[in-house]
Design a protein around this nucleic acid. Structure first.
Lengths: 221, 221
DNA sequence: AGATGTGAATGAGTTCACAGCT
DNA sequence: AGCTGTGAACTCATTCACATCT
């Protein structure tokens, strides 16, 4: 009697992050023609932990075959379903500068789960330009564009000072979730989950691990 | 007898991440003219945990004033020093497409700690263009550009298939750390810390928290 | 035999609560 | 009084180790 499918609230962020990694690794294996793999093998190949893979997966049911391992394709399907990647998520990008344009390309191809279907900008110079498969619209028409495109997720790639305002606009337009790349915190409403992605923080974290530069004095007190 | 300054290896990633957030919050306060703040106040304003702020900071010494709180400016200086942000880190961007160009702008201004001093691309059409304060060079001259610019950190904003190769080139050119935005894992050498930043994973994680769409069947079995 | 699924053991991270300083 | 710094309690996460199944 296993398989107690947990709801969104009871999977830890750490586990969620790993599930995404597993899925990615499994897709690679599938592409390489591997049809079955043990947790140990998977761990070795992508430096993960075998016990943790099993624990993480077991949380959602018993997908493995004792003595054999996991069948790759069915497991991918299960993970897709768990992570809600088994259906299409239309995405709208708000702010089509360099970052927005790059995200429109990068985020689009994720095995069909995400599709960037619209983009808006408040710079008239950018409105009308064709990017990917859509035409950039003016931010003034955000609500209409969200409705017409059926966008479910909004990606904020606007300057910091415009982030909160555009989040609010997206919420009002009926968006279901928002990813914020602006370097500022946005105050969410409870109904529309928000994830802040801070590109700078990664640099700061990396700086901490930099070996001291040669010119640094060695204080050996 | 507190103040056991830990070395890079013994601060957990979670703590490191929070220290960056504290620093950011403190800078905001400083800009707003706040000169002293208690952990509780800081926690309230930026939804953090007061006890955790104190624990995190105490790890590096006793910076607070009992009964009063923390003096903002000196604390910023201490955090800058702990996070190695008290010196300039020259950055080179490899791959000056939309993403690279956006990163060159975004990452540059971080209170002077990071400065994007160079950018290379292997597309001759982009070589020679002026961006920010530098001229895009060809990737063929990466080693020279790294040397001449004194770049310490490399930012990879190239297609997935080119990531490993360019990491290796950066290492050979004497770079000290690398931030990889390409949607692929790069195998690092131990001497040159690498941080993979996966832009897609954030979307995947967000999708998990999306409220079920109205069209989803409610399986109430 | 060989690998999963899982309780039990360990370890890491967070919160509590209060002594001690200002 | 008020708030820091910190051991102790607690919660969460990972690893171990093995019974269980193919």
């Amino acid at each position: 009697m296993p398989a107690k499918p947990p709801s969104a609230t009871d999977v830890s962020p750490l586990t969620l992050n790993r599930l995404c990694l597993y899925l990615r690794s499994l897709r690679r294996l599938e592409a390489d023609g591997v049809s079955r793999i043990s947790s140990q093998d998977l761990a070795r190949r992508f430096n993960l932990s075998a016990a943790q893979i099993r624990k993480d997966l077991a949380q959602f049911g018993a997908f493995g075959i004792r003595g054999a391992g996991y069948d790759v394709s069915p497991l991918i399907e299960r993970l897709d379903s768990i992570l809600r990647l088994d259906r299409r998520h239309p995405v709208i990008v708000v702010g089509m500068g360099n970052l927005g344009s790059a995200l429109a390309c990068y985020l689009g191809f994720n095995h069909g789960s995400f599709e960037v279907v619209a983009g808006v900008d408040n710079d008239p110079g950018r409105v009308g330009r064709e990017v990917g498969g859509f035409r950039i619209e003016h931010t003034d028409h955000l609500a209409r564009v969200v409705r017409d495109s059926g966008a479910e997720i909004g990606v904020l790639a606007v300057p910091a000072k415009a982030a909160q305002q555009n989040y609010d606009l997206l919420v009002e337009a009926g968006i279901r979730g928002v990813l914020n790349f602006a370097p500022t915190r946005v105050q969410p409403v409870p109904e529309v989950p928000l994830k802040d992605v801070d590109l700078r923080i990664h640099l700061e974290e990396l700086a901490y691990f930099l070996p001291p530069s040669d010119t640094d004095a060695g204080d050996a007190s």
